[in-house]
Write a protein that binds this DNA or RNA. Structure first.
Lengths: 206, 206
DNA sequence: CAGTGTGAAAGTCTTCACAGCT
DNA sequence: AGCTGTGAAGACTTTCACACTG
C-alpha cells in the first residue's frame, strides 16, 4: 500500500493516532477531523493529514474521518489485526509489573510466559503466568512462534539474553534494561528508561 | 553557558551519554573518544561531538574525553548535581512498581511519597513509602518543594490529577497514563506507554 | 597522528497554503 | 463552507570533511 517508503517517525505516530481515535470512539464519537485530532494530541493538523497520506486516502472531503473506519485501517497497517504473543525475560520487579499490566490485552498483545534464571522463581507463577527457566527460552520461542520479547533483566545480563532471544527467532525487543543493546539490523529494538526522561526534564528545571 | 539555544533533541541525548559514560566508568575506563561512545550507543561520532559543542569544549585534542570530567560536566548541565525529590500519584500496579524501582536513587532522583484516592491504600506503605490521600497532594508538594511528579493513575483520572499537581507547583511530569495531557506551556511532560512502542514495532513484523 | 570542534552541505521533517471534492 | 490531500517552502538535524591541537 505505501507508494513511497514511509519514514520511521511517521510510523511511530500512528499508534498515537490509534490511541486518540480509540478514546474518541469510547466517548461515542463517530466522526472526527485532522484538526480535532491535532488538538487532542497537541500537534499540527497538517502533520496528521500528511502522515495518513503515506498510506492512502482515508478522509471524506468536507467531512473528516470516520472514526471506526480509520481505526480499522490503522490497525491493519500496524498489523494489529491479529494478537501478538510475547514473552517477558526477567521476573523481578519490572518484569512482574509488566506481566501484571492490564493494558496489553485490549491493544493487540498477550503476555504468554516469563523467563528467569533464579531457581527460586522458576516454577512459580506471577500474574497468572508460569515462570520458566531462561534456558528453555529458545525452545519456547520456537514452539510458539514468538516474535516479540520484553527484556527486564539487570543491565549486565541484558545483552546476553537479547542475543539468546534473537537466535531463537525473536525479531522485536522492548528493552527495559538501562543500556543500549547491540543486535543485528533486522531486529527492531525500542527502549524504555524512565530515568532518561527525568534527566531530560531536569535540564529545564533551572 | 549555552551560547546558542540548544535544540531539545540534543538535550534529550545527553542522558544517554551520561548513561554510557557511567557504564564506562564502572568498567574502569578513564578516557574515551567520541568514536568509542558512538559505537557503544549506535549513533555517529560527529553527532556526539556536535551535541557536546553546544555546551563547551570538553575534549582533549588527540586524546578524547576524560570520563569522570565529562560526567561531571554533563551532570551539571542537566542539573543532576543535586537530588530531585519526586512524588508518585497513583498507588496501583504501575505506581507501586515505579516506587519500588531501585534505579532512581543512583541517578539523581528520590521518590518521597505516593498519593492515591483509594481509602484502602491511604495510610499503608508501599516499598517503604507512605501512601497519602491525593487531596493532601498540594500541601505536600508545597511543603517539600516538589517539582517533579510521576502520574500512574487510570487514563480517566490523569488529566485532573495532573492539573492538581501543576496548580501546587509541579513543573515536570512523567506520565504513565495512556493519554495526552494538556497542560500549560511552562510544564514539561514526558510520556511512557509501552504499548506505543510495541505497536510501532509490529509495523515492521510483516 | 589520533581525535576534537565546527562551518558548510546534505538530508530529513514539518508547516504552509491552496486546488479540489462533497 | 468545510475539510482533505499534497506539492513546495521552510525549518530543523545529521553528516561530512578538514583546520587545528596536544
Amino acid at each position: 500500500m505505501p507508494a513511497k517508503t514511509v519514514p520511521d517517525i511517521v510510523v511511530a505516530r500512528l499508534p498515537l493516532y490509534l490511541r486518540a481515535l480509540t478514546a474518541m470512539q469510547n466517548s461515542g464519537k463517530t466522526f472526527t477531523s485532522s484538526k480535532e485530532m491535532a488538538q487532542w494530541l497537541g500537534i499540527g493538523s497538517a502533520q496528521i493529514r500528511k502522515d495518513l497520506s503515506y498510506f492512502g486516502e482515508f478522509g471524506k472531503q468536507g467531512k473528516g474521518y470516520a472514526v471506526a473506519e480509520l481505526l480499522e485501517k490503522l490497525r491493519k497497517i500496524l498489523h494489529l489485526d491479529r494478537e501478538w504473543p510475547m514473552v517477558i525475560i526477567g521476573a523481578g520487579h519490572i518484569g512482574s509489573a509488566v506481566a501484571a499490566y492490564p493494558g496489553f490485552a485490549h491493544r493487540g498483545f498477550r503476555v504468554c510466559a516469563l523467563f528467569d534464571n533464579d531457581r527460586a522463581k522458576i516454577g512459580t507463577s506471577i500474574a497468572g503466568l508460569c515462570v520458566y527457566d531462561v534456558r528453555d527460552l529458545p525452545e519456547y520461542v520456537r514452539a510458539h512462534n514468538i516474535r516479540l520479547a520484553m527484556i527486564a533483566v539487570p543491565a549486565e545480563a541484558a545483552q546476553a539474553v537479547a542475543e539468546l532471544a534473537v537466535s531463537a527467532g525473536v525479531s522485536a525487543i522492548l528493552n527495559y534494561a538501562p543500556l543500549n543493546l547491540v543486535l543485528p539490523d533486522h531486529v527492531r529494538v525500542e527502549n524504555i528508561d524512565p530515568v532518561l526522561h527525568l534527566q531530560h526534564m531536569t535540564y529545564y528545571l533551572g
